[in-house]
């Protein structure tokens, strides 16, 4: 592991320990009271859920152009993070929606496109697991479609009538709400980088081990 990994992991852990305190001290929202506070975890995980397919798509495009294994490994790791942060987003969102909107789920553009993005992440992983030899290139093709879905998820709330808050909410937040939010975003981003680094390291080790087995056989 790189030298920065352990301090960064400790910092990330501390940030997740401190974040509930900051969230508890943040003021209640005028209409929803304290229920809105799940937003502090929902939105950062949703942003990571948008970041992961983009990393996966760009890495896959690079893999298709350059054919380097490191690009493929990054794409695979990002696809796993898409599924992980997608699950967090799709769990925390309905928890909030149940109290704020009175329903767990609505089939509006934002929620549907998010679910589609999560399903594409799963499709990528299923293809990698069961596609057999050559599935790396095939999965790279799927990842490109997953990345194309990301801008659609992001802008969907601004173009469709939906009860989901638009993207303009964040810049308008008062400082007392903005500070815990950006703190949580930083914590989630750090978690994203750590998990990605760990996953890449695991895959590198596996590749090296496979090479050693082959060398031993020969």
């Amino acid at each position: 592991m790189p030298k920065w990994f352990t301090p960064a992991a400790i910092l990330c852990g501390l940030m997740f320990v401190v974040s509930p305190v900051l969230i508890a001290r943040a003021p209640d929202e005028s209409a929803m009271g304290m229920v809105y506070k799940i937003y502090y975890y929902h939105m950062p995980s949703a942003w990571m859920f948008l970041l992961a397919p983009l990393v996966c798509g760009v890495s896959s495009a690079l893999f298709l152009v350059r054919g380097l294994a490191k690009d493929d490994r990054r794409a695979w790791a990002a696809a796993e993070l898409t599924v992980l942060f997608g699950a967090l987003t799709l769990i925390t969102g309905p928890l909030w929606a149940r109290r704020a909107w009175g329903t767990w789920w609505v089939w509006d553009a934002r929620l549907t496109s998010s679910l589609v993005g999560w399903m594409i992440g799963w499709a990528y992983l299923i293809l990698r697991r069961y596609g057999g030899p050559g599935s790396d290139k095939l999965a790279a093709g799927v990842a490109l479609f997953g990345a194309v879905n990301v801008p659609f998820i992001f802008i969907s709330v601004n173009y469709w009538r939906t009860i989901h808050p638009p993207t303009t909410v964040v810049p308008k937040l008062p400082v007392s709400m903005g500070v815990p939010l950006w703190f949580c975003v930083t914590a989630f981003l750090l978690l994203f980088v750590l998990l990605m680094t760990m996953r890449l390291r695991l895959e590198q080790t596996r590749t090296r081990l496979d090479a050693l087995y082959v060398a031993l056989d020969e």
Binding site: S113, G131, G132, P133, V142
Partner: peptide, 19 residues
């Protein structure tokens, strides 16, 4: 040329064409 192609086609296709 993929293994399990019959199963994988709908698995890959449906999420992408849902929109």
């Amino acid at each position: 040329r993929a293994r399990s192609r019959d199963m994988l086609l709908p698995v890959l296709l449906y999420p992408v064409v849902v929109p």
